[in-house]
Design a binder for these strands. Structure first.
Ligand code: MN
Ligand code: MN
Ligand code: ZN
Ligand code: ZN
Lengths: 143, 143
DNA sequence: CTGCTTTTGAAATTCATTTTCATTTGATGT
DNA sequence: ACATCAAATGAAAATGAATTTCAAAAGCAG
């Protein structure tokens, strides 16, 4: 799976005429080995620990490439930091976001997806994508 | 409806021990008379034209009060500016966003809301709010 | 290796939003 | 109306994420 994504990025890079660099390899490795929904700063700090030479501008730039390449999706929560999560071809999920501890739980619901299609049809709308985020308190944070 | 909201804010202000100020009245008037999904800067500039004395910090501060008061909701699109839209206490809607012409169609779906509650319950999660945005092409833009 | 172009990192910059703080203003009591 | 005192305001400074700049470094084709 990780190998697949590396190959996918390589293919993308070639098709775009991008050069293969040490930094991009490292950033991709770290991104792929990181839990979902990393902020750029988080990823940058992790990388910096073992690769102090890499600048944050490069991390910002490279994550945008991953989005272009279809490996990552940008998500905006309400904490002022852009986060990136892994996506696999064809896969989709939505998010429960805990406003207490920032935990993110992923879920899928076929019925909701179906209802969205109906709503779109009703409005003559052709769906490209959607985003459903449910905010609240997770089990640990309620009480 | 505008009167209702003014009253609602007034009630909120009283309950919170907030003072009634000229600025808040003006900002509320402008907010209520503005189309949906205004950015703070947009609203500030509009106000500034006829009320040059009002500072943007006050506009920022006041819009947050409107959210607290249940009159407004904060929306994050991908343009780096926080936007606010009108809501009525207790009312809720979601968005169909046309990526062609940026039109926004609002909708409500009780079944989806219900399913969201079930999902939340299933994960021990207490819902505070949610955001559902469906991206695609509106009737005019598909052709 | 050479020459050309992309990429990079550090620093500067941008831009939205927040904070600071001196001043003004609203509310309350006299 | 006046005095008092906390809350609210505006201007300016500060913050912080993200982007841009640019000289130096690195990739790649020949
Ligand atoms: Mn996710
Ligand atoms: Mn709306
Ligand atoms: Zn939590
Ligand atoms: Zn459209």
């Amino acid at each position: 799976m990780i190998l697949e994504k590396k190959k996918a990025f390589s293919t993308f890079a070639v098709s775009k005429g991008l050069r293969s660099t040490r930094q991009r390899d490292i950033i991709l490795d770290f991104f792929l080995s990181t839990h979902q929904h990393v902020s750029v700063e988080e990823l940058y700090l992790k990388i910096k620990a073992t690769h102090p030479g890499i600048g944050n501008a490069t991390v910002y730039r490279t994550l945008k490439l991953f989005v272009e390449a279809g490996l990552a999706r940008e998500i905006l929560l309400h904490d002022g930091q852009t986060r990136y999560e892994h996506i696999m071809a064809g896969e989709h999920h939505d998010h429960l976001v805990c406003t207490g501890c920032n935990a993110i739980i992923e879920f899928e619901d076929e019925t909701i997806e179906k209802l969205q299609n109906e709503i779109a049809t009703r409005h003559g709308f052709m769906i490209r994508s959607h985003k459903l985020e449910i905010y609240g308190l997770c089990v640990n944070c309620r009480k």
